[in-house]
Write a protein that binds this DNA or RNA. Structure first.
Lengths: 193, 193
DNA sequence: GAAAACATGTAAGTAGTTACATGATTCG
DNA sequence: CGAATCATGTAACTACTTACATGTTTTC
């Protein structure tokens, strides 16, 4: 069976102790959502698939009338995760950041509007950094005390990337401002490519 | 009609002079592929949609028996692009980078293997930076001479982000190395979350 | 006893991919 | 004249999202 990044995410979540589908979904919200968005509607079917493949074991954990399953990694599941992490066949190199496309297309705006756009993108980058620092990092830090350290590493990495982006965009804004009133001219549809 | 980021990408490509579906596809490969992947199979149907919505105008440009269409932005299309760039309703904040997920899950590896992973990710980040600098930036620079400057800005931004990531990961590798032989202990399935 | 959060899922739809099909033209 | 590239598309599939459906338990 073909495993996707999402599959490995679930295996990894089980590995660090999130036992039910619901717990996985919650954990994702507090940790990987910012770089690997995963909706609840993916979690349950994917757990079924993983069970079918023998990578996770389901155990009934219903309490009273409330249906509930707990999952654990099987030896195969553990091995599949390790093998994937060790394989050097990586996904294509991409860095997708909301806002990059707008930046790329900003020539369609007047300089004043360009600055507004760049400032908005810088603000959002600052927001991203601060969200990670206040909401995600503390959780990851607590987790690191008891074992898994890399969720914290990843959160720190993300926060630093956002911070870097914010500063980069602030510098860009200053540059646009410094260039003063337009001397561009290329506002039409100049066939330049 | 609902327009997606891809739609605005096409409008923007037409704006800077890529006239045919094929030209757009080629231009994407040389510019936005790294942060906004778009397959050829998306381009032609999307152009149809944009034409139907009156945002682009098709002009027959067949030469001999070879069918071919050229497109231009209509006033509506131009306006739609500008409106989107000015709207502050932005996509959710995300920074998706291949490799982040592996980093997040790296606790499943032994320290030696963790370093190998981190080194591999650093290498790929360096590759990303150098790809942008050698393949994408020069094209964007030539374009900037004749008008649109932001493709160059975006490429520079991307290259700098990759560079920052590479350096960050190199530091991480050094830290793991400095921590010396394992003192971790949490290799099992400790329910920590 | 109402609201929030727990817990699990399905249905319908969107976005995007891969792989293929077709043929024309240009270049060495 | 064969290969590469130009040029346009379709079919089938995969991944993922949004919105909904359903009921339970805990907490204020």
């Amino acid at each position: 069976m073909h495993l996707r990044p999402t599959s490995y995410l679930l295996l990894g979540m089980l590995r660090v102790g999130a036992a039910s589908g619901y717990a996985i979904k919650k954990t994702i919200e507090q940790s990987t959502q910012f770089f690997c968005p995963t909706s609840p509607a993916q979690v349950y079917p994917e757990l079924d698939r993983l069970e079918e493949a023998g990578l996770v074991a389901r155990r009934d954990a219903s309490r009273g009338a409330r249906r509930r399953s707990d999952f654990t990694l099987t030896a195969d599941g553990r091995e599949a995760l390790r093998r994937w992490l060790k394989s050097s066949r990586e996904e294509p190199m991409q860095i997708r950041m909301s806002g990059m496309l707008r930046l790329f297309l900003a020539d369609a705006l007047d300089p004043e509007e360009q600055r507004e756009l760049v400032q908005r993108l810088a603000q959002r980058s600052r927001d991203g950094a601060s969200h990670l620092r206040t909401e995600i990092l503390p959780v990851a830090e607590r987790l690191a005390d008891r074992g898994p350290r890399f969720p914290h590493v990843a959160a720190q990495f993300g926060a630093d990337m956002w911070q870097f982006a914010a500063e980069w965009l602030e510098r860009l804004d200053a540059e646009i401002a410094a260039r003063g009133p337009v001397e561009d001219g290329a506002d039409g549809n100049d066939a330049a490519w």
